[in-house]
Simulated assay, not measured.
Amino acid sequence: MALNTRVFVSDVDNLGDGRYCAGMGVELIGFPIEASHKRYVSPDKFKEIASWLAGIKFAGELYESAEVNLEEYEAIDVLVTDNPALVNDLSKLGKPLIFRIKVENNLSEIEQQMSMLEQQVEMFQLEFEETLSEETLKQLKTFTEEYKILIAGGFDENSINDVLETVNPEGIALKGGSEVSVGVNTFDGLVEVIEAIEADEWD
């Protein structure tokens, strides 16, 4: 399965999400790997899930502390945080770093933050709660000409392809679903968006 853009799915804590993402062509899935997180994935659970998956990269999500033994998560390819205080330490661990930014203020402030962190951060994930306006899309387009950006939120299955065409981001970010029982997941819009960006095999 091929998709029209790179996709990162965060907050994965079960094999069902992992297998679905791998089968649909998602490039990267993220696991919360600090014990304080409500969806914490232990080293043993991570190894069990990762052993079933092929052709997909793994991210370790860290939001409160950089104290993690990556040797216990040896298949981790990328690190993710939203905490500026952790950037320096995480950037020294030898893994590409994705920095998540919740967009609440104007985008000029976001640009300043990205400029300050760009030497240590591989990619920025910009998270929106409100639907992306035409003006915001134009501003994001200027950002993607300078930074590698993942867009999270602000779109749905009906608007995602227009967003991709207008902004040309590095990719998009989605969240995994809760496993309400073994093998049964609540994907909360993830499936619809991924199906909307499936590449036409005849292109």
Rank of each mutant, 00 (worst) to 15 (best):
L86H: 11
F99W: 07
F99H: 11
I76C: 05
N88P: 01
K102S: 13
V103H: 01
L107Y: 11
A75S: 11
S91R: 09
I110E: 11
P84E: 14
A75P: 00
L107G: 08
I101K: 08
R100H: 13
N83P: 02
L97R: 03
N106P: 06
V78C: 04
N106L: 11
N105R: 13
V78S: 02
I110P: 07
V80R: 05
L90S: 06
E71M: 06
L93F: 06
P84Y: 04
N105A: 13
P84L: 08
N88I: 09
E109N: 12
D82L: 08
P84T: 08
N105L: 12
F99K: 07
A85F: 09
N105T: 11
E104F: 06
S108K: 15
K95S: 08
L93S: 06
V80Y: 06
F99T: 05
E104C: 00
I101W: 09
A85T: 09
D89Q: 14
L97H: 08
T81D: 04
Y73N: 01
I98Q: 05
S91E: 08
S108R: 15
N69L: 04
E72P: 00
G94H: 14
Y73R: 04
K102F: 11
A75R: 14
E109V: 14
I110W: 05
L70G: 05
L79M: 09
T81P: 00
E72H: 02
I76F: 01
N83E: 05
D82P: 00
I76M: 07
P84A: 04
N83T: 00
V78Q: 00
